[in-house]
């Protein structure tokens, strides 16, 4: 077998899972879709003692629009969220970003909550959660807590979920009126993690002027970077100025796929594109053009 040896449990209920995780403490590791965890094990980059497989917890396999939020259960696969029309209507950014997550076979297994807990700074859904200011609900045998996105991402591949805890859902605020979103990225190959990606959320006031312009970035920082470009873009939207501001604020690292300069350049170009597209959608949703 490629991975190092590990113990394995497959609880049948959330209560059961929480009890198992509590018992195992630091030795336990949640296995969701396995699309990130199993490659890590196979490459022997991690050697958890015991995997707690949550794939039987069908009670967590939901996508709901409730109140002002889209709530996604921990067992909802990327594909399921992507196919959920009410959720996508309530927060269109979900669909726009999920289309860019890996490719279909990976989306059929990988979970949206799993990708958020995995906290990969190249993951689209981490950026979406950060941009929209969503929360993650984390449970233990002692109870539940809601962790806001800004506290959730601690470092690269490190989230606020502690040993013994299970993330049970993530919530994404629905799109306010007079607002629009976009997600654009550049990958070296279709379906790959992006060399750089940008999500944007633009809100307009009643007069159609930009009241808020925010962007979130992939692959340019250790944790999802969110920029408030409202001032840079101005009320008469100057997308190029916003791009310049973004370029100045990102601090990307080079790797074999791209130099830091190229990533910085992409951050600028994609910022402009994402904001332009989000702004156009905001205008359209405001019923004017």
């Amino acid at each position: 077998m490629k991975p190092p040896p590990f113990g394995y449990s497959r609880p049948e209920s959330v209560a059961d899972a929480l009890a198992t995780l509590a018992r195992l403490g630091p030795d336990g590791k949640v296995l969701a879709g396995g699309q990130s965890l199993l490659p890590i094990l196979s490459m022997r980059l991690a050697a958890p003692h015991h995997l707690v497989d949550i794939n039987r917890l069908s009670e967590l396999g939901y996508v709901r629009v409730e109140g002002g939020d889209v709530r996604v259960g921990a067992l909802a696969r990327h594909a399921q969220v992507l196919a959920d029309l009410p959720a996508r209507a309530a927060q269109p950014l979900l669909g726009k970003a999920l289309r860019l997550v890996a490719h279909a076979t990976i989306r059929n297994r990988g979970t949206t909550v799993g990708s958020i807990v995995h906290a990969d700074p190249s993951g689209e859904m981490t950026a979406v959660l950060a941009l929209l200011g969503g929360t993650v609900r984390v449970a233990t045998t002692a109870g539940e807590r809601d962790v806001p996105a800004r506290d959730f991402f601690v470092g690269p591949l490190e989230s606020a979920v502690q040993p013994g805890e299970l993330a049970v859902s993530a919530t994404f605020p629905v799109l306010p009126p007079r607002a629009g979103t976009a997600f654009v990225e550049v990958a070296r190959r279709n379906g790959d993690y992006a060399v750089c990606g940008v999500g944007a959320l633009v809100e307009l006031d009643a007069d159609g002027a930009v009241s808020s312009a925010r962007t979130a970035y992939l692959s340019v920082s250790p944790t999802p970077l969110v920029l408030d470009l409202t001032d840079a873009i101005g009320s008469e939207p100057d997308f190029a100025a916003a791009a310049v501001a973004a370029r100045e604020q990102v601090e990307p690292e080079p790797d074999i796929h791209a130099s830091a300069d190229y990533r910085r350049h992409l951050a600028g170009v994609l910022t402009e594109r994402a904001l332009r597209e989000a702004h156009a959608e905001a205008l359209e949703r405001s019923g004017r053009d």
Partner: peptide, 10 residues
């Protein structure tokens, strides 16, 4: 992971 041969996607 980093030797990028084309895949069936796209």
């Amino acid at each position: 992971v980093n030797h990028l041969v084309p895949t069936a996607v796209g």
